Simulated scan of single mutants.
Amino acid sequence: MFLAAAVQMNATADPSANEDQVVPLIERAAAHGARFIATPEHTRMLAPMAEMVRLAEPLGGPTCRRFGALARRLGVVLLIGSINERGGDPDRCSNTSVLFGPDGAIAAVYRKIHLFDVDLSDTVRSRESDRVIPGSDPVVATTPLGRMGLSICYDLRFGNLYRRLVRDGAEVLCVPSAFTLTTGRAHWEVLLRARAIECQGFVIAPAQWGRHEDDSLRETFGHAMIVDPWGQVLATAADGPGLALAEIDLETVTRIRRAVPVNNHFRTDL
């Protein structure tokens, strides 16, 4: 059993200001006894996409070095929900989750597979694929606390990805996000609980909250949340920067999967 923390923050276009905001939240979670701490999508910065590409960093850059050192100092498993990662395309970056072990080393890297290309209204439009390179590989990371399935935000709508993560051994599903206010009000909790129920795993979902300088999201929903394998909401963050904290008991996963053996009944031929 371990205490987990889902961080809620309000990222800006300034990476230094965002680090100044999120590091105290991570430290506060560790002071509460959290051994697994997850931050939202766009932890490093949330800005117009051209700026995200211009200021992208490689995995070995200063941001990852600082957060790796923080994980080592606190002795925690730390998921940075996403950074804008520089790759080989000068016109696009990757939307990348980075998981650090308690030794500070990178334990896993996941690049967002499903990109947020939507046209909901005059104020909620996005073409993430114009500036972001889609990932291709599902990732389940083995940590000292358990097996973590990684995903990012819009991935949440694609249940087949989470089935794959469970098939690959995931016990905890991580969903760092920046859900818009419009979609969050309607779908955030419903989708998180659905993924927890159908996958029979814990869901840990850190979130962005409030108004941002980004040119497509404008306002995010917040409500960072932790859900148990039965679909019960264990913790939700209030408005503003803060934390959702809950105990994670992986024996619950084993018990529920044994009682209702969905994975044994899944029809791959349909």
Rank of each mutant, 00 (worst) to 15 (best):
G75S: 08
Q208K: 01
V262R: 09
N18V: 08
R258H: 13
A38W: 07
D91N: 12
W230K: 09
V203D: 01
M148W: 15
N160R: 13
A38Q: 06
P58C: 12
T39F: 00
T252G: 07
R86M: 12
H187W: 07
D239Y: 05
V262D: 08
N263Y: 11
L59A: 04
G184V: 04
E213P: 05
W209V: 11
T182N: 05
G68L: 12
D117E: 03
G184L: 01
L150D: 13
I248V: 15
L234V: 07
G210I: 01
A47E: 08
S82T: 15
R44K: 08
G169K: 02
I226F: 00
P58V: 13
L165A: 08
R185G: 08
A105V: 06
E57T: 01
W209F: 11
R147I: 07
A47V: 06
V132I: 15
F116M: 03
V22L: 02
Y162F: 15
T254D: 14
L245H: 01
L270R: 14
F158A: 06
F158L: 08
W188A: 15
I83S: 05
F202P: 02
P62Q: 15
A34N: 01
V260A: 14
R44E: 10
L46P: 01
Q21P: 01
M225T: 15
D228A: 04
L165G: 09
R44H: 09
L59K: 02
W209D: 11
R28E: 06
L191D: 14
S121G: 11
V253H: 10
A4V: 01
G184Y: 03
I133L: 14
G210R: 01
E51D: 12
C199K: 03
R65P: 02
V172S: 02
G33A: 06
Q208L: 09
G231E: 10
F179H: 01
I83Q: 04
I133M: 12
P229F: 05
P144H: 10
R163D: 13
D168M: 14
I113S: 03
T252K: 10
N264T: 12
A50P: 00
S94P: 00
M49F: 10
E213K: 00
I152V: 15
R92N: 13
V7N: 06
I226H: 00
A31N: 05
G184D: 09
R72D: 13
D214Y: 04
N95Q: 14
N160E: 14
R54H: 11
A235R: 00
L74N: 11
D20M: 05
L217G: 04
A259S: 14
V139N: 09
R66M: 07
P241I: 04
N264P: 03
P40I: 13
G201D: 07
L150E: 09
A17T: 09
R86G: 14
L46A: 02
M1I: 08
W188Y: 15
I133S: 12
